[in-house]
Write a protein that binds this DNA or RNA. Structure first.
Lengths: 163, 163
DNA sequence: CCAATTTCAGTTTAACTGATATTA
DNA sequence: CTAATATCAGTTTAACTGAAATTG
């Protein structure tokens, strides 16, 4: 039998903790946003547009690690519902840059208090210094892993060119 | 459109950073695990069994915020492929507790170095103190949000005695 | 021509819901 | 009888792939 061996319990990896926290956030955020008729992904995309200004759906896709076609569908939905508008700009190729409409801004204004409540609940009882260290740690991890991605893509045969 | 974004760019919420980091982890972990034929979710379930001992698929489902039927499918797959075995135990009702087989343990032993490499890449250049603060911050957030969850639905027992 | 983007179309997978059986 | 679990079956959604058109 392979039976259970009473191993010492390892500390979970930090990656695992990140995943668990993200799952908890996602579940609560979905609940908070459902009454407003937007998914967490849609809400996030809208806040990105609010914070970073107009972006193409392809740019949004890269931020969310999604294919451009997938994000395109979401952008179409948001446009249809009047939360964003899209326009071409000189020097931007064929790209349609999406930005928030007034309705989109209003939606965010309505949602955001409840979202911030979650943010505060999550960080309650942490000191300002701890919060900062956590933020910096997360940002550092994002940067470090995106470097790993980049490095890995280098010697990846992108199966392109000719015939 | 009127507004635009007046002056300062708001700092992204910590929740957003958690999500971004989780997306980066997920993408790389999928790449790392693909050669071994397991998904990130499957790998995670196996490590949970390794760390916490035998669990039912319903218990695994709660940990992953999935429906019991969804996790059941995954557990069946892992059993079919010989990575876990399930057995009833007296005092556990109808539950089938899953635990790692030797093949499952071998699989984890093969995967884990590559996974740890990612973990280390993510934390590179952080001091031991910073790493600890980040871990504690994540754990704190998980606990805080699970309290919010609990508070939000004060009905039925479902109290899961997971430990 | 090339590269990035948008867009149309179809596919696959991973989650979901519903219903039933079993057991403490 | 009830609650938790397992399991069978079908459904929906959210991602995917492929291919074509547009543009700087």
């Amino acid at each position: 039998m392979t039976g259970g061996h009473p191993d010492a319990e390892r500390a979970p990896m930090t990656m695992y903790l990140v995943k668990q926290l993200e799952l908890a956030i996602r579940a609560l955020l979905d609940d908070v946003l459902r009454p407003y008729g937007v998914t967490t992904l849609q809400y996030t995309a809208l806040t990105v547009l609010q914070d970073r200004g107009a972006l193409s759906s392809a740019q949004l896709a890269r931020r969310a690690f999604l294919r451009p076609q997938t994000m395109h569908q979401m952008v179409l939905t948001l446009e249809e519902r009047g939360f964003i508008a899209r326009e071409t700009r000189p020097g931007n190729g064929r790209a349609l840059l999406a930005s928030l409409t007034e309705a989109g801004t209003r939606l965010l204004d309505e949602c955001t208090p409840a979202v911030l409540e979650l943010e505060h609940a999550m960080l309650a009882d942490l000191s300002a210094g701890q919060r900062l260290t956590v933020r910096e740690g997360l940002e550092h991890g994002i940067a470090a892993l995106s470097n790993v991605s980049r490095a890995r893509r280098m010697h990846h045969p992108v199966a392109d060119t000719d015939e």
